[in-house]
């Protein structure tokens, strides 16, 4: 995912340079590369091994162990408990919802500042702001939404006093699914803007003109050309947004304090030993999370292969 993200983000000039440079370098190294070159990578791989491979591997092992350390599949049967299944479902629903809504709004915003013809100043402002907002998450973001849509939040109060709409009377709750979703969307939108912007920049205005010239309407242009051309980038972006929400812990933790049982919160609870402390079940849940992410990525690369068969 991240490498596709990288591809999306490196603008075309950069991409050409990359291929040019690495092409030249690979010739260079093909002549000279030998086993000694690999020695230079030892510190890095040691680090990766110690702090990525071992922790992940230990969870994998732990998921197949009981408390005494002997082999068992019981943890996975615990995964099938209704409350755990439902927490996976909620997490998936939350991630998918915020990816789609944040992705849609982010796409429209990115469209507006790229091919939408807004002034250059607007574009650089929105880009910078997106960089900030996509990093503005976790505890402060939760506070911001409490100040906005909490029971005494500004928007809640204004809606009530000025427009006579009582959000909380009508069933809204910031500490519920939709409250969390609205909060997540805050960082999903700018992330989408950042990811999809280069792809939109790559849309030639002549494609649109050519299609208009041949009698196509705006809808026909987007249906036959715009969307198909953007589809690989859109898929990549949506998957990234999905994963972004799926792994999020800090925002949910500080917003709901664990009221909504999304998977990261449950895993965190297992670690902190708050409730039903069962580390091995925790390992299995973590493994489940990793599996879902891995499946998502596989699905993505498969979809991308189909949707981009015309790409170089």
């Amino acid at each position: 995912m991240t490498d596709s993200l990288k591809k999306e983000r490196s603008n075309q000039k950069g991409a050409e340079q990359t291929t040019g440079a690495s092409g030249a370098l690979s010739l260079h190294s093909a002549a000279k590369s030998n086993w000694k070159d690999w020695l230079g990578l030892i510190p890095f791989f040691l680090f990766i091994f110690a702090f990525m491979v071992i922790p992940a591997g230990s969870l994998l092992v732990g998921a197949f162990q009981n408390r005494d350390g002997s082999f068992t599949l019981i943890n996975f049967s615990h995964l099938l408990k209704p409350n755990i299944i439902s927490s996976y479902l909620i997490t998936i629903r939350l991630s998918a919802t915020t990816a789609l809504l944040g992705g849609l709004i982010g796409f429209l915003l990115a469209y507006a500042i790229t091919i939408g013809g807004l002034p250059e100043g607007v574009r650089s402002f929105v880009s910078t702001f997106s960089g900030v907002a996509s990093n503005f998450a976790g505890v402060p973001l939760a506070f911001a939404f409490i100040s906005t849509l909490g029971r005494v939040g500004l928007v809640t109060v204004i809606l009530k006093t000025v427009f006579g709409i009582d959000l909380y009377e009508s069933g809204f709750n910031l500490y519920s699914f939709w409250g969390l979703a609205l909060t997540y969307i805050y960082f999903q939108i700018p992330l989408m803007v950042l990811i999809i912007q280069p792809a939109l920049d790559g849309m030639k205005k002549e494609w649109r003109e050519a299609s208009e010239n041949m009698g196509a309407s705006t809808f026909q242009y987007w249906f036959h050309i715009g969307i198909p051309v953007l589809l690989p980038s859109l898929l990549a972006a949506l998957i990234l947004l999905f994963g972004n929400a799926f792994g999020a812990y800090a925002t949910a933790f500080s917003l709901t304090g664990g009221l909504i049982n999304i998977v990261p919160i449950l895993i965190g609870a297992q670690i902190r030993g708050d409730v039903l402390h069962d580390p091995n079940l925790g390992y299995a849940m973590a493994l489940g999370m990793v599996l879902i992410m891995a499946i998502t990525i596989l699905a993505y690369s498969w979809l991308q292969k189909i949707s981009s068969r015309w790409v170089k």
């Binding site: 995912m1 991240t2 702090f51 990525m52 071992i54 922790p55 992940a56 230990s58 969870l59 732990g62 990234l240 994963g243 799926f246 792994g247 999020a248 812990y249 990261p264 895993i267 965190g268 297992q270 670690i271 580390p279 925790g282 390992y283 973590a286 999370m289 990793v290 992410m293 891995a294 990525i297």
Partner: peptide
């Protein structure tokens, strides 16, 4: 991305 921070924390503690 595949191993979110919460899972990483879990793995680091266990290891």
């Amino acid at each position: 991305f595949v191993i979110p921070p919460v899972v990483l924390a879990f793995g680091l503690i266990k290891s």
